[in-house]
Structure formats: structure tokens, C-alpha cells
């Protein structure tokens, strides 16, 4: 599975977790866990899997008014 994930990421740089798990015919949780493992092994850079959502701290920046998109590491 790990090698399949590596191969898929080698073919294309940008995936959603749903697309990748469908492509590999594996449950998303298993793929997420596998990506986390590849990161631990140093075969993928840290932060290779992230969850998109609104920034939780829009007032923490310069308060431009937009709650921007943000990503948090979701490999674990």
C-alpha cells in the first residue's frame, strides 16, 4: 500500500484524500495512516496531508476581514 501511495503521488502531485483512496481502492483512513507513516519514514515531507478549513484565528493576523483558508496536518 505504501508503495502504491508513493507511486500515485509520483504520478500526480495534488490529490484529495477521497480521490487517492478511490484510486487505490482502499479506505480513506488507511490511506491517511499510510501517508502519516511515509512521513514518519521520511519518504514524504512533513505536512504532506492536510485538512482544508477556514482559519480558526482570523483575528490573529492583520484582521483583513476575511477568514482565510487554512490547513492543519491531518496525518495523525
Amino acid at each position: 500500500m505504501l508503495r502504491e501511495i508513493e507511486a500515485a503521488l509520483g504520478r500526480r502531485g495534488s490529490w484529495t484524500l477521497a480521490e487517492l483512496s478511490t484510486s487505490l481502492d482502499l479506505p480513506p483512513e488507511l490511506v491517511r495512516s499510510g501517508i502519516g507513516h511515509l512521513m514518519r519514514l521520511g519518504r514524504l515531507p512533513q505536512g504532506s496531508l492536510g485538512q482544508i478549513g477556514a482559519c480558526a484565528e482570523p483575528r490573529g493576523c492583520l484582521s483583513c476581514g476575511l477568514a482565510c483558508g487554512a490547513m492543519r496536518d491531518s496525518a495523525r
Binding site: 484529495t16 490511506v31 496531508l49 492536510g50
Partner: peptide, 10 residues
């Protein structure tokens, strides 16, 4: 060469 990225969407 940019590094790969997998995204989880809400």
C-alpha cells in the same frame, strides 16, 4: 520540483 500534497476536504 514541488512536493506532493494530499488534501482532505470538509
Amino acid at each position: 520540483e514541488p512536493a506532493p500534497l494530499v488534501l482532505e476536504l470538509p
